[in-house]
Design a protein around this nucleic acid. Structure first.
Length: 908
RNA sequence: GGGGAAUUAGCUCAGAUGGUAGAGCACUAGCUUUGCAAGCUAGGGGUCAUCGGUUCGAGUCCGAUAUUCUCCA
């Protein structure tokens, strides 16, 4: 990474010309300062989207990727590290998604600059370096800076952080140091885990006149938009346990986080993060595309400015998420991304007048902007653009539907002057219409929305969901303390002796499960798409006991075994850390391995057949099948699918031996041509799986067949789309494939037998279908003809009675539908018609009454009422319209009575 | 995992309260035009997602299934 070395000249303070650092330069100076001057190692940002952490969906701060170091689960490779971490926050104290864009300094996606000490330096250096960087390198005015230190907490029994106070005094006047409460100055990762006092640096960016009136000291931590925290130095020295108590950590760490966007704003002297060169290029593009002016809108306090901020912010979140492999979808992390994108579309739709996808056009700008620090966006920009465009288009359609629906609701509610809260919620729920948008449109029509009703409906829905989820974790029961991560021996063996180190209970609606940690295990934990192993733990002792393992998962690099068996009871009489024999379900594992190795072969084959743009976007491997999602823009043709199958099966027959290399330096692995995935966090050393070094080389932690011949057979069963620009293939291997092929062949055989073994089966079926259609047409035609002749006869029977063209007769037809058709045809042929047609079909009497519209009006006759009267005679019922009605009854003996009753009607 | 909605012609969609399945675009033919673009006229095209139920009668009401969308966790 090289600093971009151009300067932008700008005018500030009207007269003075000063030079302003670009955002890219500011970031680079931070990294240079800690790396070159203070001996830190640079670490690339972890993916913004997390894969193996059940407690968190996204990196929400810089420390997430270092969590294990703080927890003591792993020792750091470098004791001093500096980085810029991509972060995403959509909920929390200040980061509720619905608030972002309303102000000028909160974001969903942001960068967090940080310097880190893992058991190395502590408060002294952290404070000194922070001060030096801000005041000497960035030359921020000292008279605008304030710092806070932890003021102690009686309830926790924690003293003031005098040490930090003393250290700060060496740099800054005591009148600029504030003591803070536990809320502001004691940092915790969550309910449990490492924590400690922190010290924040705040900056007062108000104009001098305002500063003279009220001092910045009084505005620190008061939510003033111009007096803001820019850097938080966290000194981790405690571990919070599940029962709430604190214990000192063996090693003390430093974790600092500086909000990059705010820092840039402070250095560039702007009143808003969005006025910095991080956001301005995007906003300028938006101005061009929408024909609206941002700063004008800002002055007028119009929603146009909010909308541009929302779009500029959300664009970043969505783009980086997709670059890290998280596509918008309908659940979990994917749903968060979808919601963010939709919020941006909504604002663009309502306030910027966009009716077609517009966010996707901004991606190239962003890709260029971050090319040096986060190249993953530029490398995939075509793909990202496609995904965003499709998602935008889909939501715009939904929006239009909702608007139509809202229109009709407004039309119906015009008298009530209020829109039912339940309906507003339905709009929100089904069409993604937020309340404010519904309210806005309602207001334009002079209506209000019942907000209380909306909240109630929302609350009810949340309640339903919560009851369905909710789980509770107990503390770990530690049988033997250990800081080593579990050793995985499953590459070599299916069975191993191990010690049971700790376990805990997890309860939810479905019952209680136990999680188990061993010192070593052959159980593969679900990862990289490969499902976790199942199997048994046998607890040794006088009375050996079995623990059935139903699943194995990773939790921040710990291998966790899951069981529903009652662990406290099983372990009741065992000494601490009992010895167990851990054995996986081997036959299941062998099937999984076939599918996993086949996935690698298929991945390589796809790249050969479709092109190098094919990149894995998701993978599932279990004992039944494999599922593989990859980037590709068109449906695969049958020929392409066939070719992929052919290549994979050829490689299987070639019986290529597995080549497994562990602890390969990542750079070397890449040089070998190994496919690494975006959005996947790799360590410095990786495992490389090769099947023929000229064919398939992948970084992979999963388990594989020893040679490809074991797979036996490979068969693609479906190819479909899973998202915009992403195709999904499902395939089967080994015995499953054989079974499937045999089934299909058997099916084909029985069809062939049915058709008496024709030469060309396909042609035979086609003929059959054509013939059937022709016959159907002909039958219809004949039916019509038959009806025509009946109609001709009926026409002759029509007689004039008192000026009414009357007919009442029984006809021979086979379907009730025919009575109806005849009645309508008679009506078309004869004016002033009064027709009563009856027929006996399937043991029931059917009656149809047709009355000319003129008679309906003149004589006030009603076919519906008449038919009801007539139906009574045959113990039936019926109804219809005034001019035409039908009925049916079961008393066939009285059929003629119906006809004479009809005659009487006319004679009256 | 839970709630809600949608599925009608090749495509995009209408079809209050159950009562003879429709429009626009696309398609075919004829006419108009030097040709194109287009216009006019006529026509073909439907298992109203599937299965079952209620009813004299179901695209419409009820139940199940499938697929898609949507909201919540």
């Amino acid at each position: 990474m090289r600093p971009t070395t151009f300067w932008i000249a700008i005018f500030c303070d009207k007269k003075k010309v000063c030079f302003m650092m670009t955002a890219n330069e500011i970031r680079q100076q931070f990294l240079d300062f800690f790396i070159k001057k203070c001996g830190h190692a640079y670490v690339h940002s972890a993916p913004m989207v997390l894969k193996n952490d059940p407690t968190l969906m996204f990196s929400n701060s810089g420390m997430v990727q270092f969590k294990d170091y703080f927890l003591g689960n792993r020792t750091a490779e470098h004791k001093r590290v500096a980085n810029s971490q991509k972060c995403l926050r959509v909920s929390g104290k200040h980061n509720d998604l619905e608030d972002v864009g309303l102000d000028t300094y909160h974001h969903t996606m942001f960068e967090m600059l940080g310097n880190w000490s893992f058991g190395d330096y502590f408060k002294k250096e952290a404070i000194q370096w922070a001060w030096e960087l801000l005041t000497e390198v960035y030359r921020l005015p000292k008279d605008r800076l304030y710092v806070t230190v932890f003021g102690g907490d009686q309830k926790e029994g924690l003293a003031r952080d005098e040490e930090a106070y003393q250290l700060w005094q060496q740099h800054i006047d005591p009148s600029r140091i504030l003591y803070g409460s536990k809320k502001d100055n004691f940092w915790e990762m969550g309910d449990q885990g490492p924590c400690g006092p922190c010290s924040e640096i705040h900056i007062d960016l108000r104009p001098d006149a305002e500063r003279a009136q009220i001092t910045g000291y009084d505005l620190v931590n008061q939510d003033h938009p111009q007096v803001i925290e820019i850097w938080n130095l966290v000194f981790m020295q405690f571990n919070r346990k599940a029962d709430g108590s604190l214990e000192p950590l063996p090693d003390r760490h430093v974790d600092t986080g500086m909000g990059f966007e705010r820092l840039v704003r402070a250095i560039q002297g702007k009143v808003s993060n969005y006025d910095t060169d991080i956001f301005q290029p995007i906003i300028r593009q938006l101005e061009q595309d929408s024909g609206k002016n941002y700063h004008q809108a800002e002055k007028e306090n119009s929603k146009v400015a909010v909308a541009m901020r929302v779009v500029a912010d959300h664009l970043r979140a969505v783009t980086f998420a997709i670059a890290d492999g998280q596509l918008p979808s309908n659940n979990k992390a994917g749903y968060v991304i979808r919601r963010i994108l939709r919020r941006a579309v909504r604002y663009g739709y309502t306030f910027l007048g966009f009716r077609k996808p517009f966010i996707c056009h901004l991606v190239p700008l962003l890709a260029e902007q971050f090319a040096s620090i986060f190249p993953e966006v530029k490398a995939q920009s075509d793909f990202i653009i496609n995904v965003i465009r499709e998602e935008e288009a889909a939501f715009l359609r939904t929006l239009e539907n909702g608007l139509r629906m809202l229109d009709s609701i407004i039309a119906q509610s015009a008298n009530a002057k209020i829109i039912d809260g339940k309906i507003a919620f339905e709009l929100y729920d089904t069409y993604g219409f937020p309340l404010d948008l519904t309210a806005l449109i309602a207001r334009e029509h002079g209506l209000l929305v019942d907000e209380a009703g909306f909240d109630k409906a929302m609350q009810e829905q949340k309640e339903r969901s919560r009851n369905a989820a909710a789980s509770e974790k107990s503390d770990w029961v530690v049988l033997e303390a250990s800081e080593e991560p579990t050793e995985f021996v499953g590459y070599e063996t299916d069975e191993a002796q191990a010690r049971l180190l700790r376990y805990r209970a997890i309860s939810d609606k479905k019952g209680t499960q136990y999680q188990i940690v061993l010192d070593r295990t052959p159980f593969y934990a679900e990862s990289g798409g490969q499902v976790g192993d199942t199997g048994l733990l046998i607890v040794h002792g006088e009375h050996p006991r079995k623990i059935r393992i139903t699943d194995t998962k990773k939790e921040i690099d710990q291998i966790i075994h899951f069981t529903y068996d009652n662990l406290p009871e099983i372990l009741a009489n065992t000494a601490h850390a009992p010895t167990v024999t851990a054995m996986i379900d081997s036959s299941r594992r062998r099937l999984i391995e076939c599918n996993h190795s086949a996935t690698h072969l298929m991945h390589a084959a796809l790249r050969e057949v479709l092109g190098k743009h094919v990149v894995q976007k998701g993978s599932l491997v279990n004992d039944e099948m494999l599922r593989f999602d990859f980037s590709h823009f068109a449906k695969m043709t049958d020929a392409e699918i066939e070719q992929v199958e052919k290549i994979v099966n050829a490689k299987i027959r070639a019986n290529i031996a597995l080549e497994e290399q562990r602890n390969v330096p990542i750079e070397k692995a890449k040089a070998m041509g190994a496919m690494a995935l975006f959005g996947e966090k790799y360590g410095d050393f990786v495992r490389v799986i090769t099947f023929d070094k000229n064919f398939s080389v992948e970084l992979c932690g999963g388990t594989h067949v020893p040679q490809t011949g074991v797979i036996g057979q490979f068969k693609i069963v479906s190819e479909s789309s899973s998202a915009a620009g992403v195709r999904r293939i499902e395939a089967i291997t080994a015995a499953k494939a054989e079974e499937k092929i045999n089934q299909e062949l058997a099916l084909l055989n029985s069809v062939r037998n049915l058709l008496k073994n024709p030469k060309d089966l396909l042609k035979a079926v086609e003929n059959l279908m054509e013939e059937k259609q022709a016959l159907q047409k002909e039958l219809e035609h004949l039916h019509n003809q038959a009806l025509q002749s009946v109609k001709q006869q009926l026409l002759k029977q029509v007689a004039d009675k008192n000026g009414i063209q009357f007919i009442a007769t029984r006809v021979e037809v086979t379907k009730p539908e025919a009575l109806k058709t005849l009645a309508f045809q008679l009506k078309q042929a004869i004016d002033n018609l009064f027709a009563v047609l009856t027929a006996e079909i399937d043991g029931k009497v059917h009656i149809a009454v047709m009355i000319a519209e003129t008679l309906v009006k003149e004589r006030n006759w009603n076919a519906s009422q008449i038919v009801k009267e007539l139906a009574k005679l045959v113990e039936g019922g019926g109804g219809g319209q005034p001019f035409f009605a039908t009925a049916a009854g079961k008393n066939t003996a009285n059929l003629s009575a119906v006809l004479s009753a009809a005659e009487q009607l006319v004679n009256q």
